[in-house]
């Protein structure tokens, strides 16, 4: 058997040499036990295609998550008369509503055709549903922020000002509604694919992305100076959920089928993301280091988004993962 392995190793080095140099310098090969590939599948070639998405997409997941959950805090602020909180939350919402489509369009192969996304609506395509959610979110989020600012500065007077205030509230509720979709659909988007590391966790993903979005919105507000008790407890809550999700991921292993989530660079990206947004913020909060907890959560959420996309790339190139997921 070791003779076979030697042949395989020699062949492997020749293949590499051939690929890089275009020619092989070594002597002929005794084919016994030889050219038959010992790599999984067809010469180890990928069975499904890895995602073509680049850095814009994980960043979009991050920005969309935080912006999508932010109007919930604006609603809470409006209800309780916490004007400053509502204002800050609306600014996060509007900023995210502007950044998100830019990132999404930048990643398109043909950015000038981005409007074709809104040519049709297909409920069976999370990409189509998501494009519409993002469009609706932007339609509510940016005007909500403008209307609220108009009202705060009393640009208009009398009944017109009251009207603007009501419009701002209605738009904020609309933004909160579509924002919930924006923060969670991204999990469905990558969950409903042919990539083993993703589809095996198609239930965990929307929960994870939604929770991360909620925590990020709260963390940004805390960093903007709103270190208030509700946000503190919310921070504890999302960190607890993230810790549970981390444990879920560690226990719900599928062997080679989702090894990209547990091993290698992508595995460590996801793991460090979960630790930074799960247990660490809890510790920081218990030791009264609220800003550190917020920074740690944000960093963790960002890393884990990059980790999931990286894991998809690794998993998509791994024929054994595809076979194991269908075995």
């Amino acid at each position: 058997m070791s003779a076979d392995r030697n042949f395989e190793e020699r062949l492997e080095s020749w293949r590499k040499e051939a690929k890089h140099g275009g020619a092989v310098s070594g002597r002929g090969v005794n084919v016994a036990g030889g050219p038959i590939p010992r790599r999984p599948g067809y010469y180890g070639e990928a069975v499904v295609r890895p995602p073509v998405w680049t850095w814009e997409i994980p960043l979009y997941f991050f920005a969309g998550g935080a912006a999508g959950m932010a109007p919930l805090f604006a609603c809470a602020g409006l209800f309780l008369g916490l004007t400053d909180l509502a204002r800050a939350a609306l600014w996060i919402t509007a900023a995210g509503a502007i950044i998100s489509p830019i990132l999404l369009i930048m990643d398109l192969g043909r950015p000038r055709l981005f409007l074709n996304m809104l040519r049709v609506f297909k409920y069976q395509s999370p990409m189509s549903v998501g494009a519409w959610i993002l469009a609706m979110f932007g339609t509510f989020a940016v005007p909500a922020c403008i209307a609220f600012e108009l009202h705060l500065h009393h640009v208009l007077s009398g009944s017109l000002d009251t009207f603007v205030a009501v419009v701002a509230e209605v738009l904020t509720f609309g933004a909160a509604y579509w924002g919930l979709g924006l923060a969670t659909y991204t999990g469905v988007l990558i969950g409903a694919t042919a990539i083993p590391a993703w589809f095996l966790h198609h239930v965990l993903l929307p929960i994870h992305f939604g929770t991360a979005g909620l925590g990020c919105a709260a963390a940004i507000l805390e960093l903007l100076g709103f270190q208030i008790r509700p946000l503190f407890f919310l921070g504890m809550f999302v960190a607890t959920i993230e810790t549970l999700l981390w444990l879920w991921l560690e226990f719900d292993k599928h062997g080679p089928a989702d090894r990209a989530l547990h091993a290698g660079g992508s595995g460590w990206l996801i793991r460090s993301g979960e630790i930074l947004s799960g247990p660490l913020p809890i510790i920081f909060r218990l030791t009264n280091l609220v800003p550190l907890a917020a920074v740690s959560f944000l960093l963790g959420a960002l890393l884990s988004r990059f980790g999931w996309i990286a894991a998809g790339r690794v998993s998509g190139k791994d024929p054994e993962a595809v076979f194991a997921s269908q075995g």
């Binding site: 043909r110 074709n116 409903a192």
Partner: peptide
């Protein structure tokens, strides 16, 4: 019509 969103790539 295709705008190159890349979603079909991971859906096949």
């Amino acid at each position: 019509v295709c705008n190159g969103c890349g979603y079909c790539v991971v859906a096949c």
